[in-house]
Amino acid sequence: MILTTAALLALGLAGGEIAVLLGLPMPWMLGSLAACAGLVLLVKPAALDGYSFPMRFRSGFVALIGVMIGTQVTPELLRLAGELPWTLGGLVLFVFLAHMGNMAVFRRLGGYDRATAFYAGTPGGLMESILLGEGAGADTRILTAQQFLRIIVTITVLPLGLSLWMGEPVGSAAGLNLAAGDAEPADALAIALIATAAFVGMTGAHLLRLPAAQLTGPMFLAAAATLTGAIDLHLPVWMIAAAQMVIGVSLGLRFKGMGAALLRRSAGLAVISVGYMLVLGAAFAAILTAITGIEWLHLLISFAPGGVAEMSVIALSLAANPALVSLHHILRILLTVVELSVLAKVLGLKGAG
């Protein structure tokens, strides 16, 4: 398993290098994702039969992203506290409208049964949706495919779209392309402090049962250290790129076992669903920008329906107030789980209680 994981990471590294040469946005995440997705869809090596990517290993790199986000927490975020009730109120309405719209897409265009469409249509809470959907009699194969494709399509379409809109690859703003000569020298003490903050934060968050513990714990700990000036935890560029690559490899492997017909159908519906949610999120962002004065781009990324870790990476890449973005995505997941449970009972789906 260790050798297989090492080989996959090497493939992800190669995919990231190619993406850098091609000037793609978010090269280390999207390049590694594409390389590993191509491997499991086209090559289908026997060595991957029964293999699953070590999620504890992935969690460690997600924790590094959490530390990085925490270092971005500044007094400016605290000054936005008075505007947050507006944006969080908008998030409540967004979750409901996104879920209902997605359910209509999957029912009318996909022909899914009611339970499968309902749980496949949630704009967050991936694992909770899959587990509750299984208990409600949803088709877990379709449900799992749609939920993972929601994240993958979002983190692929959003950077590409923003790159076209901004006229430059997403990632350059944060220096994440790792062009020759960017790599910072490794400081053993700094790396030890970063690793300690990631481990202690993640462990504490698990004990407190915080949502997205591998991200939120390190983020809160690093934020406290940054605001108090106790420790400087700024990550070197190569470490951020490595975290992106590991996340990309783990996402690419999610395509393993998907048949061509299922993939085509689910991917087409995912594009429609994500497109609807991005347009909806853009509209909410425009309204809330007029009310609060918070930048439209920051709010758009805050409402985009990707995973917490993946959207946080995009926010870091754009220097788009990643702490604000992460806060909204964590709350989006919490709101989705609550809304999911309430609506399931209202609609009379079995297993909802």
Rank of each mutant, 00 (worst) to 15 (best):
V92I: 14
A304D: 08
F57T: 10
I291F: 01
L39V: 01
D113A: 08
G306W: 01
V170K: 07
K345D: 12
V40S: 13
V279I: 04
P211T: 01
G275W: 00
M311E: 10
L126A: 05
I272G: 04
T144H: 06
A198H: 11
Y112V: 08
E310R: 06
K256W: 01
L13R: 12
L22P: 14
V67Q: 03
M1R: 12
L162Y: 10
L109Y: 06
L347N: 10
C36R: 07
V43N: 12
A34N: 03
A230S: 14
T116Q: 10
L164D: 09
L48T: 12
K350Y: 05
F94W: 11
G281V: 02
L343W: 14
G248Y: 02
G38K: 05
M202S: 14
L22A: 15
S32A: 10
V170T: 01
F148R: 08
Y51V: 01
A6Q: 02
S312H: 13
L24A: 14
T116D: 13
Q147I: 01
A225V: 02
A47D: 11
F148Y: 13
G229Q: 06
G307Y: 04
R107H: 10
R332D: 02
A304Q: 08
A261I: 05
W86D: 02
R150S: 08
W165M: 14
I2L: 15
Y276D: 05
G306D: 02
R150E: 09
A145Y: 03
